[in-house]
Amino acid sequence: HNGKLCKLKGIAPLQLGKCNITGWLLGNPECDSLLPARSWSYIVETPNSENGACYPGDLIDYEELREQLSSVSSLERFEIFPKESSWPNHTFNGVTVSCSHRGKSSFYRNLLWLTKKGDSYPKLTNSYVNNKGKEVLVLWGVHHPSSSDEQQSLYSNGNAYVSVASSNYNRRFTPEIAARPKVRDQHGRMNYYWTLLEPGDTIIFEATGNLIAPWYAFALSRGFESGIITSNASMHECNTKCQTPQGAINSNLPFQNIHPVTIGECPKYVRSTKLRMVTGLRNIPSIQYRGLFGAIAGFIEGGWTGMIDGWYGYHHQNEQGSGYAADQKSTQNAINGITNKVNSVIEKMNTQFTAVGKEFNNLEKRMENLNKKVDDGFLDIWTYNAELLVLLENERTLDFHDLNVKNLYEKVKSQLKNNAKEIGNGCFEFYHKCDNECMESVRNGTYDYPKYSEESKLNREKIDGVKLESMGVYQILAIYSTVASSLVLLVSLGAISFWMCSNGSLQCRICI
């Protein structure tokens, strides 16, 4: 991952900044910058967002509201009850120091605090018919004063009620008058409520006091790749198909172990950190130390980045220098085999997901714990399936590479015959000098055995068991695999060879 928040398929997220979902939807004055928000790819909250409900109280069923919003990608904020005409018999300019803005008392931008007009609070009834052709999110509140005197001074009615009804919602609220500790300079409380109004449905408000009335509502448009994440990451000019709280993932790998919460087309989250597919040879310690064997393909974004291909070729060293050249036929066979294998694994496992966190309130801790156990169970199954699949494929890959290298080895052996000696570690020792032209003939299969047989015969008789390297004779190393990324691999195959001279070296080696 890149540690950044990015656009998702070209669409920017909605960053709530210092506000949370509650503050944004109710219209906390400190969240005025969010009022123009219309569309987004996903919503970003920060872990310690401080601006929620400015007048103390709870947004009821907040967790369910977050779940609903996680599939919303755009909205239209509109005046559901026009301020100047909807409440002619009531005062609608209630403000509070708890919702101060720029040093002055204020109130929510989407709600109206209705109080008595003169000395009376006549029963009010108002309704709205949803003609938007889509779901409408309606929010309101109920004020709970701290004393009967406060109730009387604001609403005149000691036994007030609030009723809200639609086809799918029907509740009646009565204020709970009680002494409470002071929070944000208030002994009173406000509880906030919401409902989704279906197209064509009607919502009716009736009250004799204590109503925090809707002013603006939201017509919602769903987008199934949307979601809500909690993150401290910063926004950058970048684009992605998959976003996590820790950063964007741009990967076609089937798995990731970065974060379980994802938005967009994302690899499946697994616990494993070692889900690797081999593309090189079986481990040979001396070669492995030099980083030549054991190439791997990573299938977990965050564990290993991208696929690494092994390729086969020849390396030689003689009086004229040293050089490398790919054996294109065996390399292409290996590439085709690995590509098919990788595609097979991805096809089997690479279903892209959006995974969002589930919200539970403080009273639902047991449910949250149960949900976590269920999620953990599914996660263990996914991890096991992934590891088992790759384990089985790896064994076949190792066998496949062994065969490829063996074929190259036999190709060289059949040409050199007794003009060189096998020394048991995949290397041959020449009994004759071999210049670049000679080396090329070994690589392309045109090695002239009779041409060098007499010199080889004489050297075999002279050496008589002495280690060949100390006599200045020449080696050919018969097994060799270097490691390159897919891009470098293609470039390498396009070149005939490249040279690395070893000044004054008397050794001649050709490596497979």
Rank of each mutant, 00 (worst) to 15 (best):
I308W: 04
D380G: 12
Q256A: 05
A355G: 08
L398S: 10
S502W: 02
S344R: 03
Q332M: 07
L477Q: 07
V483Q: 00
N404F: 03
T279E: 03
G357C: 02
F400G: 14
R396D: 13
S286T: 11
F255G: 06
L292D: 00
Y449H: 12
S272W: 04
K406I: 01
K433S: 14
E461R: 15
E301M: 12
F360L: 06
F498H: 10
Q507A: 09
Q320L: 13
E395K: 07
V466M: 11
L275T: 04
E347T: 08
F430L: 09
K365C: 11
N369C: 03
V488F: 13
L391Y: 03
L468Y: 03
F428T: 04
D402G: 08
L388R: 11
K365E: 04
F293M: 13
V261W: 07
N371L: 05
N407E: 09
Q320E: 12
I346R: 06
L389T: 07
G465P: 14
F400M: 13
P254H: 02
E461N: 14
L392E: 04
K372R: 15
L490T: 06
Q328M: 14
I308A: 06
T240P: 00
A420W: 02
R443L: 02
L292K: 00
M439S: 07
R271N: 08
N350C: 07
K373Q: 10
V488K: 00
L398P: 02
S481H: 06
E437I: 13
D464C: 15
G426R: 08
G494K: 02
F293Y: 07
W311D: 04
L468K: 01
A334G: 01
Y409P: 05
K417Q: 08
Y384Q: 06
T339A: 15
K373I: 07
V342T: 01
G264F: 05
G494E: 13
L253P: 00
R396L: 01
E429I: 11
Y314I: 04
Y447W: 15
T279R: 06
N333G: 10
E440Q: 02
Q415Y: 04
S251Y: 11
M349S: 02
N407S: 15
T351K: 13
F360P: 05
E387M: 09
D448E: 10
G321T: 09
Q288I: 09
E301N: 07
G294L: 12
N436Q: 15
R276N: 05
P254M: 10
I423F: 09
S441T: 15
Y449K: 04
N503G: 04
N318Y: 05
Y452A: 06
